[in-house]
Each structure stands twice: as structure tokens, then as C-alpha cells.
Design a protein around this nucleic acid. Structure first.
Lengths: 215, 215
DNA sequence: GGTAAAATTGAACGCTCGTTCAAACATCCC
DNA sequence: GGGATGTTTGAACGAGCGTTCAATTTTACC
């Protein structure tokens, strides 16, 4: 209950054949992902506490008890949702950082990819839900990785400012504005609405980059 | 339970002295607002379902039962929070719309006021929490008024596009981007952090307007 | 086809939280 | 000071939800 799990004292003898992993055998990985998708959708529209495990399971035509075969508890599902989307985001950011595009192009690539991730992947992922619902240890992990994304975007902007491509402004503030505009999308986006994710990505990128450029 | 409250049949005789209002006597109005502020803060950080009435009351050193003297139930508190902030927003928007500033200046005034409202008023108000938690009737009301704000901003942008002050883009998309950037602030803003609300307001306004201008 | 492992079910438990309400306390006015 | 009205308390109820688990069904492999 306090901090990280202490190293367990080795069991004395008793090791036979394969060691039984405490949880998570070679479960059907696709089912795990399906659960994450259903959970993300539920979290997004009802909030973490408003989304019942019953509802998450029902969307997959499961009984709720079955979720506990794949995850230890509800909080772990939330954590896994965050990890899933952060994995993708950070991978994306790395690719872009290492490329030799101009800051201008980098930002465009990033925004377009971000919008697609948010709209087409895990229904806006769980970027939205309350971080507070996470356990202290999980919270620390997620905040760390999220900061990593923040700093990545900030660095690209700072580069643009340094090379004179962008006006001299507060890179931190600008990155928050961009992330806000993008992260807000799930709030108004309707899958069957008029705007396609491609159109949104393009429109957002153009607008958000235009504001960065030096006048 | 269905739709709006039907007109009640007048009571036949029986009217003595003052008519007893069904709820909401001349209660202490400031207590009501205090409850809204506490609730808004709790909703923002824990989500609607995660925020307990116990916690909302405790922050005001009250017992939870007492809240039910001021509000019928938890959902009504959420509704009142939304109403409170929408009142302010819509009043603001009306003033700005009627003024004879240029679209450019209008947007700046609006963004600055928005940021201040979000940061300094009801802790980011309840713009954040799940609308789904509202009852159907309340939901309809709030969505209607929120659309009103959306359209107000959109109209100002459209004016700017029409007069050539802004580039020719999708006003709807742009307004979503602006509202997203602004509404996202409560997610990262730390009251005791380095950035003052004034600095944020100014920085955001400059950036978000720069992107609108025609190149 | 039989058996071991994987996956799923359904019922049950316990706890938390929203809500109610009668009683107690505070305030104000004649 | 006393009654009426406004406000607060504290205890209790009941429903819903997360979680557990033994039993059952499905899948995979020899």
C-alpha cells in the first residue's frame, strides 16, 4: 500500500516446471485491445467513475466478470488506455524529431498525426479522463510520459523560434495552445458529421502553424 | 419526467398570505454560490461521478445533508454550475457583439475575457465535466446555450473573413480550435505556477489571432 | 477423442455514495 | 422572550457498482 511494491522474498523451494506468472498469461491480445477501446469510449463519454465495468463489458457482449481475467481492476484498464495512446504518441514524436524536415513541416506532420490518432484511434483515447483516478504509482508514470510529449512539441517550436522560422514567443504557452485545440476535438467531433478527420487535420494544421510564423 | 414542466392547474382557493414556493425560498444567495464554486472545483478535478457531495460540503465545512437545503440533488448543482458560467459567457459575448470594434479587436477582447473567466472564476467552471451527467431536459438547455456561444464566436470570425481581415477558412473549425485551446487551460494551469492569468490571456490572444490574419 | 489450459459466466458480497428526514440550532421581528 | 422562519446536523436507508470466485464452456494440442 505504500509506494512501490517491495521485492518479495524468494519462495524457498517449490519451483516446478514453468513459473506461473502472477497475472497475465498469454491471453488473447486482441481481446485486451478491444477492452481498451470499449473502455476508452466509455471513459470519454461518461468519465472514469461514470463508466461502469458492466457497460464496458456489455459493449463487447461480455459479462463484466470476464474483464477481470484480462485486467486486475478498473484502474488498471485506465492505466493501460493511457499507456496505449502514449506509446503511439511518443513513437510518433521520436520519428518526427529524428527526421530532417524543417520545424514548420515537423509541426504539420505532428498535428496531422495527432488529429488522426485522436479521432480515428481509441476514440480520442483517454487523454481526457481525470488523471486523478490513477493510483499514485501509475499517475507518476503517466505524468512523466505526458511531460515527455509536451517537451517534444515544445522543442520543435523552440527550434523554429531559434532558426527564425517562427516569431519569438513563449514556446511552452504555444505548445499548450496547440495541444488544447487538438485534445478538445473529441468534445465536438461527430463521426457521422460533415467534417472528415482528414479535413480537420488539415484545417487545424494550417491555422495553428500560421499563428507560429513570424509576421 | 417528459420534456418541460406542463402548466400547473391553478389551485382552486386556498391562497393565504404568501404562496409557499415549492423549493428555493429566499435562501442565502452567497451560500449557493459558494457551493457552486466548491462543486465546480471538485467536478473539475474528479469528474462529476468522482466528486462526492461529501467532499463538496466538507470543503465548505458543512455536512453533506445541508446541500440538499439549497439544491434538489447533485445533478442540479452541476446544472447550476453550467448555467452560472454560461450566463457570464453569453453576457460577455453580447457586449462584444454590439460593440463597434473591428473583428480583430473583438476576438482579442473575447479571448482575454474567456481566459480570465476560466482561470479566475469558477476554477475553469464546469465547461469540462461530462455533459452526459445532466438530465435530458437540462442537457437540452445547456447544449442550446453552448451552441449560442459557439455561434457567437463563429459569427465574429465570419465577419472578419467577409471583410478580408482574416484569411478565407472554415469559421466553424477555427472557432473549435480557439475554444479548445482556451478550454484546455484548466488541465495544465497551476494557480501557484509561473504564468499569471494575464500573461496567458495575452499570449493566447496574440497567437490565436495571428493565425486568423490573412497572409 | 480426450485432456489440460484458456476463456467465460453468473451469482454473491461488501462498500461507498446519493438522498431523506426528523430533530436541533440560529436568527430576526413584534 | 417567544414564536416563526431560516439553517444545519447526524443518523439511517437503499441502490449501484467494483470485485471475487467456483463452476462451466470453449479452445488447442497430442
Amino acid at each position: 500500500m505504500i509506494g512501490a511494491s517491495p521485492p518479495k522474498p524468494r519462495p524457498i523451494v517449490k519451483r516446478r516446471k514453468k513459473r506461473r506468472r502472477p497475472k497475465a498469461p498469454a491471453q488473447n491480445e486482441s481481446t485486451r485491445v478491444q477492452i481498451l477501446q470499449s473502455a476508452a469510449a466509455a471513459f470519454r463519454s461518461h468519465g472514469y467513475h461514470g463508466a461502469t465495468v458492466q457497460r464496458i463489458a456489455a459493449a463487447l457482449r461480455m459479462e463484466k466478470g470476464n474483464l477481470y481475467y484480462y485486467f486486475r481492476n478498473k484502474e488498471e484498464i485506465l492505466f493501460a488506455c493511457h499507456q496505449y495512446s502514449l506509446d503511439r504518441l511518443i513513437r510518433l514524436l521520436d520519428e518526427i524529431s529524428e527526421s530532417d524536415e524543417s520545424p514548420d513541416e515537423k509541426i504539420r506532420t505532428l498535428i496531422v498525426a495527432l488529429v488522426h490518432t485522436i479521432v480515428d484511434e481509441l476514440h480520442g483515447t483517454t487523454l481526457f479522463t481525470d488523471l486523478v483516478a490513477l493510483s499514485p504509482a501509475h499517475l507518476k508514470t503517466i505524468i512523466g510520459r505526458r511531460d515527455c510529449v509536451d517537451r517534444g512539441l515544445r522543442r520543435i517550436i523552440a527550434d523554429g523560434i531559434a532558426t527564425g522560422a517562427f516569431g519569438d514567443r513563449d514556446a511552452k504557452l504555444l505548445s499548450f495552445a496547440i495541444l488544447g485545440a487538438v485534445n478538445w476535438i473529441p468534445r465536438w467531433f461527430k463521426p457521422d458529421g460533415p467534417a472528415s478527420s482528414a479535413a480537420i487535420a488539415d484545417g487545424f494544421a494550417s491555422y495553428l502553424i500560421a499563428g507560429l510564423r513570424q509576421r
